[in-house]
Design a protein around this nucleic acid. Structure first.
Lengths: 223, 223
DNA sequence: CGGTTTCTTGATTGGGATCAATAGGAGTGG
DNA sequence: CCACTCCTATTGATCCCAATCAAGAAACCG
């Protein structure tokens, strides 16, 4: 966890102060909301374990999933700008988080330079990630989107010590579709096509990646 | 400019130090790049005047415009995460910017709390904006996308003291299309349709908004 | 001016949406 | 443990919006 979400090179005393900062834990069950659109913002959240989605709703009910987050990642950065959350964060499995009071984080990051810089990097990384999603939504075809999605998940599971090639999806086809700008039927069909072509083996939420190179090849060429 | 991009409630001395921070100016001509993908990051940029686009390129040449920026807005936040820029920033008209050395910004924001908080808000606002673009790309139809685009531009021009209803586009149909996930022909056709329906008057890059309510109504209903 | 870029409009195509039906699992309570 | 229900996933048939292909027209610029 530390390697993923904390800056390196801190003194013992600094680590202690950070530990105090993130001492406020909370458990959530599948389906629970960590926060909702419009709720007052006062903390960001580090995921200790579990899996989340964030989404935005249009007045007419359309949903856009803006991201899936797993252990070691942060939630709630959207709330800083207006002091209110601008999306919903929902646990997709039983999860545990640390609440990090934002005002205390700002105080501490004035005193620990590496923490300040690390936090800036995390926010910037989120912006870069969002640009990647825009690219995906704006220019890619259904196959490319789903391939990119699977490879991204695979890479993040790997970074957490799980298998890169064998995992369970925590989200439904509809949620994947919402994230990728596709309908659930298209997601399902594309999974089936990938399976027919030997790129993956998929049974409901269980996915095995059989041909990483093949998925990567799907991503950059039209046809 | 100050109202748009600086925190309020600073002392004279603090304002002076900020002025020093942003003293490094630079002029760009239409078509010039402020920075390119892969370039080392060492500063963020405040736009004093002019108009920019940022974009990301795929290996096969596909372009995704990730945003259009105007006076008072910041460029370069993407570069913090990896110390290298992850997109291109191109002037769409002759422009002037201030370079803000990032390490100096971090130093100063440790000392001026309101600057620190303001900077965090600006980064967060960028994340929220990106979520809006995802919603647009993931769930909206062509008409809705273009209506949202025009209303957003209108609102930002208004905030800068320009007419909300009469302005010149700085970008081509192709760039609008790239931003909105549409082809240039679709952008052109949709402009024409809006004109036929009396929502706008458009002649090349000159746009007049005739019916704000009509455009807003287009955004939330299917059909 | 002449050349080039940008924009508009028409005809046709195609990828993903929609509509529809069924099957598979998971969770619940008896 | 099984029966029931509900949610989720798969697959087929058809439709439609935006992409593509194509041809001019308009505007910009050196």
């Amino acid at each position: 966890m530390r390697e993923l979400c904390l800056p390196l090179g801190l003194t013992e005393e600094e680590l202690q102060r950070l530990d105090d900062l993130v001492s406020n834990r909370r458990r959530l069950k599948r389906g629970d909301r960590l926060y909702s659109f419009g709720a007052p913002f006062d903390a960001i959240y580090a995921i200790r374990s579990g899996f989340f989605k964030t989404d935005v709703l249009l007045e007419d009910g359309r949903e856009q999933v803006t991201g899936f987050q797993m252990a070691g990642e942060l939630l709630g950065l959207d709330g800083i700008s207006s002091e209110h959350h601008t999306c919903n964060a929902v646990a997709l499995e039983d999860s545990e988080i640390c609440a990090i009071p934002f005002s205390r984080l700002e105080v501490l990051s004035r005193e620990i330079h590496t923490l300040q810089h690390h936090f800036h990097k995390v926010m910037s990384r989120e912006i870069v990630r969002d640009h990647g999603v825009m690219m995906l939504l704006g220019t890619m075809r259904a196959e490319e989107r789903l391939a990119a999605f699977l490879l991204n998940l695979s890479q993040r599971f790997t970074a957490r010590g799980f298998s890169h090639a064998d995992f369970y999806l925590r989200m439904t086809r509809e949620e994947i579709g919402s994230y990728l700008g596709l309908k659930l039927e298209t997601v399902s069909r594309t999974f089936s096509r990938f399976q027919e072509e030997g790129h993956i083996a998929v049974q409901q939420k269980h996915v095995r990646i059989l041909d990483v190179a093949g998925l990567k090849a799907l991503m950059n060429y039209r046809g």
